[in-house]
Design a protein around this nucleic acid. Structure first.
Lengths: 300, 300
DNA sequence: TAATAGGTATGCATATTCGTATGAATTGGA
DNA sequence: TCCAATTCATACGAATATGCATACCTATTA
């Protein structure tokens, strides 16, 4: 086998990739845990190696040349392969020590996870836990997280998912707010109710309208995807929120709205992890632990 | 974007790949132009990084562990991407200086190429030429060569090929050898002729038998894929050889056999190069140059 | 216009990595 | 059984890459 084609500094390609994606050397340096001068020199070295100008130094910014654009495509492929390699390596690791990254939404992160993590840390002090709190689904393939807690079943088939149970969702509001609503026999009469919602998509209103509501934009005048703010706004009597049963019932200032009509919806809770990581002792330990604890909470 | 997954030493992965493929650290070191102790340390560092034992040190040999096997698959993907990157980089290079690797068979390398290369070197002293002499078709995709001279049209569609012309092939032998053959009216009577052939495949005999010959194993008692040896054996009167017209006619000790029957076959000559390299000034220069000179030789 | 913020390139001391030399262990063959 | 040839691991001086401090440039803002 002739290896001359791979006999160049792969780290320089890595630097090129991250620099091109991040846009600046400084940002890339931060991402890679190196310094800007180092990356500056590495990019220069790569350019000298290849005999190609990758970046045009225009003003304060580096702009990819056409050649750079072309090569970036290949560097991306290499980067993806590197991620796969890293992922597989983590999966192959049979060491219980090390870190596990968990992705969760705000509510899970602030309410349900703390006790679980505390208990896990007591049982497995060798496992470091990093929690990424985000509404967006972290990319498990890029190992932004090792384990994710999600309310939908992932579609990618290289992910393994376990359904932990179902969250019962009610509408919650302050007693005062709910009492000042006009009496009604049917949801369709609640034309003035304020629902503090996640975003401007019609998903929520469509769903409720199917159940007999008649909601329009006027019912969604407070929007935030930050659920803890939703909660506080609700406590201030600004409207009702969707909230899981187990958490909402603990909020003494809130009560279930329209309890006699039953819960407004149920959301599944999935624990997801990359298939490659199934073989990792450490990730598996955390995965199983969270699954157990979560199930206990949901089915108590 | 989270780059933590790519933030490891890619060169160590490269070392792992080459070491695993080559089998030993020493061989890998030679292939990479590094030393064995360096690779030894890099592999150890990678193992420490990943927390995985990649190789089992059994005796003097490194044997891949199961985890290593698993990871090797991913490393290969990364290596392939690296080759593509390197290939594209060479193609993007707009420098005329640098090296070009030409793959050719022995005959072309010893007879036709020297003058072409000499002329090219005079015109383009900045271009270094490396010639790989081999019967096997070099893998252009792995950049074992940039340009190859072949007698068949390549099938891969990411290669570009130019037909330079056709080689007229005659059987040649010494006058003495040919005269001692029994007189014949038809090729089928030449049951005792010795043909010095390339290999034990039936390709040649099948082809000639289609033309009326009746050849069997007895007619191929001297086998060598080294054509210059074929030539020398032929000069010694050991049999006849297939030889291109332009070269054979210059051999004063040889004559065309059965000239009245016409040439025994015609072989196309293709000049091949990877598509990515089409954009390289340097490779293109050499490609066009060889194409011109070769055509002149063949069509003179 | 001047000040600030954010970016890249360069000089220098330092840390890391590499190559040479060497040793230990194993294999293969005389 | 012994010797030669490989192969991997380790010690130490040398080469290389890195980080810090800094200079310099550009765009934005007061």
């Amino acid at each position: 086998m002739n290896w001359s084609a791979v006999n160049f500094d792969w780290n320089h390609t890595r630097t090129f990739l991250v620099t091109a994606e991040e846009g600046t050397l400084s940002a890339a340096a931060k991402a890679l845990g190196l310094t800007q001068p180092t990356l500056s020199r590495q990019v220069s070295a790569l350019e000298a190696d290849l005999g190609i100008t990758l970046f045009e130094r225009v003003g304060q910014r580096l702009v990819l040349t056409d050649s750079g654009m072309e090569l970036l495509e290949h560097a991306r492929v290499m980067g993806d392969a590197a991620m796969q390699f890293s992922l597989a390596a983590t999966g192959q690791s049979q060491q219980l020590e090390g870190s596990v990254i968990i992705s969760a939404g705000e509510l899970d992160a602030t309410v349900r996870l703390p006790k679980i993590i505390a208990k896990l840390r007591r049982e497995e002090p060798g496992i470091d836990i990093e929690v990424i709190v985000t509404n967006a689904a972290s990319d498990l393939k890029r190992r932004e997280a090792d384990i994710a807690i999600r309310s939908f079943r992932p579609t990618q088939n290289d992910l393994i998912a376990k359904k932990l149970g179902e969250e019962v969702i009610w509408l919650y509001g302050t007693k005062d707010y709910l009492e000042q609503l006009p009496p009604f026999k049917d949801f369709s009469e609640l034309t003035d109710i304020q629902i503090i919602a996640f975003d401007r998509s019609n998903m929520v209103s469509d769903r409720l309208n199917q159940q007999g509501w008649q909601l329009s934009k006027h019912n969604f005048q407070l929007i935030t995807s930050f659920q803890l703010l939703q909660l506080e706004l609700c406590k201030e009597g600004m409207g009702v929120i969707f909230f899981p049963e187990d958490m909402g019932d603990k909020e003494t200032s809130l009560v279930r709205a329209f309890e006699h009509m039953g819960p407004v919806m149920k959301l599944p809770i999935w624990l997801v992890c990359h298939q490659e990581l199934r073989t990792s002792l450490r990730v598996r330990r955390v995965f199983d632990f969270i699954a157990d604890e979560f199930s206990q909470i949901l089915n108590q």
